[in-house]
């Protein structure tokens, strides 16, 4: 249970941030409204981070740089397509279902495309997803002519983005459900086990007869699917979709994955820590806002945080500190 240290650190951070935020803001930070608005902002970036995590777990330099581009493309393309077919004001339910289905299908196709070029053509994931990032963004620009597409806020779509169920934002519930589902898949299905083992030792995986091509395609397809769902949530929250939405999401998604203790070389990662890590980042971001610092400070903080957590992971600082703490308490414990 070595790496679980990340879980405890993240939990502690959440408590500390809540406490600090509550004190600094005089309570408004902990108000129901602020908690709800923070929870609404987590899902889109959290879904993309899970996608990055899965690609990293596959090992062999796996990474998915095309996530936000794919999300924007699915929002833009599905938006244009659905707007041309249905009238949102007359049949909001049908419109929402068609739009959501379109997003999911386009995201999934984008993900499968990533998986195919990586596994069948043997293109390095960095290069392949860099290329598709540009391709997806480019197609979104061409389709929308560089303008934003107004999806509008028909009722069911508005509920996905801004609605509350028992006081909890709908999008956050969707995010948690998807997280739980993926967590179960990773832990209890052969696919999950094979994914981690492939990432830990690709050569051994090949000799064990794992269908590596299928594993990689599945992984990137799931990542694309998540991007498509993120596309729905982005559209639902913002009314408009545009090709250049969330330009800093790429860094933030990777930052969340690294903070969650996902090994960039592959073979290890847990959904629960990714979710917690996304929450920590959102708490921190809102806190910086509350203190009144500019977005530039936030970007600087993200960069520093990423580098710090890389250092923490490299030198295994968490476990060392924990070990020194326990050895202080009881000198007989051996590591």
């Amino acid at each position: 249970m070595k790496r679980d240290a990340n879980l405890w650190v993240l939990c502690t951070l959440i408590i500390v941030l809540f406490g600090f935020g509550g004190v600094v803001s005089g309570g408004t930070y902990l108000s129901l409204f602020n908690l709800q608005s923070m929870a609404m902002q987590v899902p889109e970036i959290g879904l993309l981070a899970i996608g990055v995590m899965l690609a990293m777990c596959a090992g062999n330099g796996g990474i998915d740089l095309s996530g936000i581009a794919n999300a924007n493309l699915s929002g833009v393309a599905s938006g244009i397509f659905t707007l041309s077919l249905f009238d949102a004001s007359q049949d909001p339910m049908l419109f929402t279902i068609a739009f959501a289905a379109g997003c999911v299908v386009i995201g999934l196709l984008g993900g499968i495309f990533n998986g195919v070029i990586i596994s069948r053509f043997g293109i390095t994931p960095i290069l392949g997803t860099l290329g598709t990032q540009m391709l997806f963004t480019g197609v979104a620009v061409v389709l929308s002519d560089g303008r934003s597409v107004t999806v509008g806020s028909p009722d069911p779509l508005y509920v996905i983005g801004n609605g509350l169920v028992f006081g909890i934002p709908t999008s956050f519930i969707i995010f948690i459900l998807i997280g739980c589902l993926l967590g179960v898949i990773l832990k209890y299905t052969p696919y999950g086990m094979r994914l981690m083992l492939t990432g830990a030792n690709p050569k051994a995986a090949v000799y064990s007869g794992f269908p590596s091509g299928r594993i990689i395609i599945t992984t990137y397809a799931i990542s694309g699917l998540l991007a498509g769902i993120a596309g729905i949530i982005i559209a639902a929250r913002n009314i408009n979709v545009k090709w250049d939405y969330g330009s800093s999401y790429l860094l933030v998604a990777i930052l969340i994955a690294v903070m969650a203790g996902v090994r960039p070389e592959g073979g290890y990662g847990r959904i629960i820590t990714v979710i917690l890590s996304a929450v920590v980042l959102q708490l921190l971001s809102s806190l910086l806002n509350f203190i009144g610092l500019s977005n530039f400070v936030r970007d600087l903080a993200w960069g520093v945080l990423l580098l710090c957590f890389l250092g923490v992971g490299r030198f295994d600082l968490i476990n060392r500190i924990l070990a020194s703490l326990t050895s202080m308490r009881s000198p007989h414990v051996t590591k």
Binding site: S248, L250, L251, I254, L255, V258, P264, F296, V297, D299, L300, A301, W302, G303, V304, L306, L307, L310
Partner: peptide, 12 residues
């Protein structure tokens, strides 16, 4: 990953 971090660091 390192240079994504430093990119934001330097720009920040």
């Amino acid at each position: 990953i390192v240079t994504i971090g430093t990119q934001y660091f330097y720009r920040g």
